Simulated assay, not measured.
Amino acid sequence: MRDLAAGIRYLGKGQRWVARHGRWWGFGLIPALIALVLYGAVLTVLALFSGDIAAWATPFADGWGAPWQGLLRGLFVALLFAGALLLSVLTFTAVTLVIGDPFYESLSEQVEKDEGGCPEGADRPLWREIWIALCDSVHVLLRAAGFGILLFALGFVPFLGQTVIPVVGFCVNGFFLAVELTSVAMQRRDIPVRERLRLLRGRKALAVGFGTPVVLLFLIPFVAVVLMPGAVAGATLLVRDLLPADEQEPEEMRAQAPQPGY
């Protein structure tokens, strides 16, 4: 319970940090707004062509009379749009982090400087940083999708599927969202994605306490845009306390450091 409460506090600390640094909050809004426009455009196109998609996907209903054809295709459109909205919520953070890699890297560095020192990141070109962030996000999303399929199947279990499974689902999504948000500070330390997952699995309650409230808040329209800068700031503070002092420097720099006795 202590770690769970600590995770929630990190989210609050991050939001307070950006509230005290309004310029950085505005700076961090830019990639989230870009992602919001992209998602809005895709969902608008989907809404415009959803009827055609429903007709294409249900050719067996072409000869059905009213009202059954309309009910079937209306249900298909509703499920299609609901699935698209859920996918948008699950992928919004990953897409925003990839789009805003240089933005959130700068914001995260400033948070660390305010906290007493920022580790110097590995010397890589911007395109390489974005490529690593994209590959890491795909890796995390594939793992999350595996759990999502399992939880979807368990959702058909009577009683458990309507009570316990949704709660577990939010916690699982919260854990993976915490992995995504901490990736900015972790990547600066040159910690590979599998090691990030191992570190956060060792403190599951901390990751769930931080990520699950973010998942719930991100379900509210436009809230994800407003809270994104503070979520990155809070994740940076979490990483600083999660890692031992000797792991704060990037792996490449630790490897180059002189060893005792030499």
Rank of each mutant, 00 (worst) to 15 (best):
P192W: 01
V208F: 01
Q248M: 15
Q259L: 10
P31I: 04
T91C: 11
G161A: 04
L86F: 12
R20Y: 11
F92M: 07
L97C: 07
V42Q: 14
G121C: 03
A185F: 05
D246V: 06
S50Q: 13
L227C: 08
P258H: 01
A144D: 09
R23D: 09
I8M: 13
I8C: 11
V42H: 14
E120R: 11
L79I: 04
Q69D: 13
A224P: 15
S108D: 06
E109K: 12
M253I: 13
L46E: 02
W17E: 15
A32E: 00
R198T: 15
A185M: 06
P67E: 03
G40M: 07
K113C: 08
G14D: 15
E195P: 09
S106T: 10
D101R: 11
T44W: 15
A57R: 01
M228Y: 05
V98P: 00
A207N: 05
A41G: 09
S108R: 10
A133C: 10
A224D: 12
Y10Q: 02
E195C: 13
F175G: 03
L97M: 15
V140N: 11
F218C: 05
I34E: 06
V89P: 00
L243Y: 04
P260Y: 06
P192C: 03
I165T: 01
V215N: 01
T96L: 06
L33H: 09
P119D: 00
Q259Y: 06
R143M: 12
E195T: 13
L107A: 12
L86W: 08
L206E: 04
L199G: 00
L151Q: 01
G22F: 13
P31Y: 00
Q15T: 01
F147V: 02
E105C: 01
L107S: 12
A57T: 00
I8P: 07
S50D: 14
F210R: 02
M1Q: 06
D190S: 14
L216C: 07
G70Y: 11
G83I: 05
L4N: 01
R128T: 00
L38I: 06
F60G: 12
A41W: 12
W127P: 00
G83F: 02
W131C: 09
E112M: 06
L141Y: 03
F27L: 10
I30L: 12
L79K: 01
A185N: 08
S106R: 14
L160H: 03
A255K: 07
R240D: 08
S106N: 11
F170W: 12
G211Q: 04
T212E: 09
F81Y: 13
W25K: 15
V214I: 15
E247I: 04
V138E: 05
I99R: 05
R196L: 10
Q248C: 05
M253K: 08
V45N: 00
L79M: 05
D101M: 09
A185R: 06
R128I: 00
A145N: 02
R128L: 10
A233D: 06
G209V: 03
A82F: 13
L181G: 07
R194S: 13
I132S: 15
P221S: 08
G7K: 03
W131D: 10
S137T: 01
F159T: 08
T93R: 11
F159C: 09
G28R: 07
D241P: 15
A233E: 02
L80I: 11
I34V: 14
G74W: 10
Y262Q: 14
S108K: 09
D136C: 03
S88R: 10
N173A: 14
